[in-house]
Computed example of a mutant assay.
Amino acid sequence: MPNEPQIQERAARPYAAIPIEAPMREWGRVNALVPEVFGWLAEQGVPPAGPLFYRYRVAGDMDRPFRLEVGVPTPAPVTGDGRVIAGTIPAGRYATLLHQGHPDKLFGSITALLRWADERGLKWRNTREGDQEVWGGCFEYYLTDPAEEPDMDNWSIELAYLLA
């Protein structure tokens, strides 16, 4: 996968996730959900059908909370239990970019993808809820298994943002 933005058509995919609201300064609470969602899938006997992802609904910052889900694609729809929710990765055209390196350096790749789309007049499939912009499909897919590559400087993370 080249390290420059692309547009890809993708099919809908079911997933299981745990939603959370947290500002960047409390990101440890977000990351702590990763083993929980994988543990829930194992308890249900559901194998992952793709890489871990963070689905951003509302962007935040160091103090304003992000609204997001920590999820994993599943081979078929699942039934949530209140803590874990069932969802669907929306079908559609996505602007994508592969980030190589530490997750702490994602901001540069995110900025590059947003700029690339803006230069081409591309619009996101977003809505408004009051004063908040709600993303219809804003995903970070963690393609590298930390058990196989513990050095986060060597990780691959795919950004995939749903286009209008």
Rank of each mutant, 00 (worst) to 15 (best):
A32V: 06
Y161F: 15
V134Y: 09
A17K: 02
L68G: 04
Y56D: 01
D61S: 08
W124V: 12
M24A: 13
K123E: 12
G108E: 15
V37P: 15
Y142W: 12
A11E: 15
L33V: 02
G71H: 11
E26D: 14
H102G: 12
T74A: 15
D153A: 00
D81L: 05
V34C: 07
F38G: 13
N126T: 05
G108W: 06
R115V: 03
V84E: 02
V72L: 09
V58N: 02
L163G: 10
I85C: 14
A86V: 05
A91E: 10
P90D: 02
R25T: 11
Q8L: 15
V84I: 09
M62C: 04
T127M: 05
V84P: 14
G130L: 06
L106G: 14
L41C: 10
E133P: 07
T96Y: 07
P19T: 05
I7K: 01
R13W: 10
V37C: 13
R67S: 14
T79P: 09
A49M: 08
M152I: 00
F38M: 10
Y141G: 00
F139M: 03
R57S: 09
T111L: 14
W40L: 09
V58T: 07
R64Y: 12
T88N: 12
A91R: 09
P35A: 13
L143F: 04
R55C: 06
E148T: 02
G80E: 04
K105Y: 13
P14L: 02
F139L: 03
P90R: 01
A117H: 09
S156R: 11
E148N: 01
G45C: 06
A59P: 02
R57Y: 05
L97I: 07
V70H: 10
E129K: 08
R29I: 01
N154H: 01
W124G: 15
G136H: 07
L97C: 11
L114V: 12
I85W: 06
G121E: 01
W135R: 13
E43L: 14
Y94G: 04
Y54L: 14
F66D: 02
V34Q: 13
G137E: 04
I7Y: 02
R64W: 07
Q6L: 14
A112F: 11
D104I: 10
I110H: 15
P90A: 07
R29E: 11
I7T: 11
E140L: 06
R64G: 07
G121T: 01
A11Q: 15
G92W: 06
T111V: 11
S109Q: 08
P2N: 11
Y94H: 05
W124P: 14
Q132L: 15
A76K: 11
D131S: 15
P51A: 06
A164R: 11
E149D: 00
A160Q: 02
R64L: 10
P77F: 06
Y161R: 00
W135D: 11
R10D: 06
D63V: 07
N31W: 14
P23M: 02
E36Y: 10
L98W: 09
L122H: 13
P90H: 07
T79F: 09
A76S: 14
E26N: 12
Y15K: 04
G71V: 00
W135K: 14
A59V: 12
E140M: 03
E21N: 12
L113T: 07
L41Y: 07
G45R: 02
G92P: 10
G108T: 08
D153W: 00
L114A: 15
D131W: 10
R125P: 09
L163N: 05
P5L: 01
V37D: 08
A12Q: 05
V58L: 03
L113G: 12
L68I: 01
L68A: 05
